[in-house]
């Protein structure tokens, strides 16, 4: 899956979790940029991404990914491990 495609897919998940169809994710987007993105919805987002891509983030990736790009790095790494 191309990086762009991954971004598209997690944007869809984020729109669903944040219940806001306007949400646009970019590589540099952080939680501070999106009003609905709090510590609780963060966990929902992580859990839905894990289920959708059938991967599991590590504790550090969940708590330390500073922006969407970093989260995608981790995600793509796990997807590679699956193969």
């Amino acid at each position: 899956m191309e990086r762009e495609e991954v971004l598209k897919k997690i944007t869809e998940i984020a729109r669903d979790v944040f219940d806001n169809a306007e949400v646009e994710l970019k590589e540099e987007t952080t939680a501070a940029d999106i009003e609905e993105w709090d510590s609780l919805s963060h966990l929902n987002l992580i859990s839905d991404i894990e289920d959708a891509f059938e991967i599991k983030f590590t504790l550090a990736e969940v708590s330390k990914s500073k922006n969407v790009g970093k989260l995608m790095d981790a995600l793509i790494k796990h997807m590679g491990e699956k193969r």
Binding site: S39, L43, S47, K56, F57, T58, L59, V62, S63
Partner: peptide
């Protein structure tokens, strides 16, 4: 990870 991150002791 969920427990240490969010003090949730049961998986989603």
């Amino acid at each position: 990870p969920l427990y240490y991150n969010a003090k949730m002791n049961v998986s989603m």
